[in-house]
Design a protein around this nucleic acid. Structure first.
Lengths: 145, 145
DNA sequence: GCAGCTAACTTAGCAAGCTAACTTAGCCAA
DNA sequence: TTGGCTAAGTTAGCTTGCTAAGTTAGCTGC
């Protein structure tokens, strides 16, 4: 079959994401992408949409729509930046915080179980993945892009 | 920031896929997902849509639509299985073969360059990724799913 | 004090995932 | 030979990526 790295990464991630999405929808009534967005807003502390797009690895229009639906669902608070400029301050509502907190560790634990079952050394694989991301990021930035 | 493995895999793959998509559209006038589908049909030798879905890591409806547009574009040949049953035989047209062959090695080479720049050992990372995929697959199957 | 610039965001429309529900084709048992 | 079963594929409708193009808010120089 000769499956290569890029294809395997693509398929592995697609499956993990899909599994995560099913679990979250079934048990917590939220999609995986919405959960990721809320998680990062929580971690980034009152950032802008542009920053969130950067961290999520998606484009600004995608974030624009996402913040719209999350705000409509009462999970996210979107306010004009008091410091001025055409910016929005993003923060979690109480309900948003509650939702994220209740899910928090669950996923990493489940993924860790898969990793353990596979015999792949977790720390090393995680470190390699993080390093690849950083490198790819840098190369794209250098390429002018 | 404390970015975890599942998020990093998600973001890394999203970026790689997006970059691949841009290159393919610009230089070869085809999207990345269509290219992947054609590649796998080539490797799987006259398989069914269900098998292709399995290998691509997507659902059957997605493959159904994809084979439709690829056939309409003259890249894929979709025929009822002569052996009977409600199946389709998938194979590449000459144009499809030409297209896949002309792109073939390019991506793995580009990705290998990124991996090299990051200092991550390619063979090991590829092996770990493949192992995780196999394990996840097995666990999902065992879970009855 | 307005022209132009830049940064941040939005709108519009397309591509391609997904789930749920349906259809089609062959098989098998009564 | 028909009624149900299973496997494979399709349809419908939603979500959420994307790009291209447009808008809005403040800044800067004349």
């Amino acid at each position: 079959m000769e499956r290569n790295l890029s294809l395997n990464l693509h398929v592995l991630t697609a499956r993990l994401d899909r599994a995560a999405d099913r679990i979250l929808r079934a048990e917590h009534d939220i999609s995986y992408s919405r959960f990721l967005a809320l998680t990062l807003v929580g971690e980034l502390e009152a950032s802008t949409q542009r920053t969130l797009a950067e961290y999520l690895g998606v484009t600004e229009p995608s974030v624009s729509r996402m913040t719209g639906v999350l705000a409509a669902d009462g999970l996210l608070d979107v306010q004009p930046d008091p410091a001025g400029g055409n910016r929005r301050r993003l923060s979690l509502t109480d309900e948003g915080k509650r939702r994220v907190a209740s899910i928090r560790q669950e996923f990493e634990d489940r993924l860790a179980a898969v990793v353990a079952a596979s015999g792949v050394p977790y720390a090393e694989y995680a470190e390699h993945t993080a390093r690849l991301l950083t490198t790819f990021d840098r190369l794209e930035r250098e390429a002018g892009k």
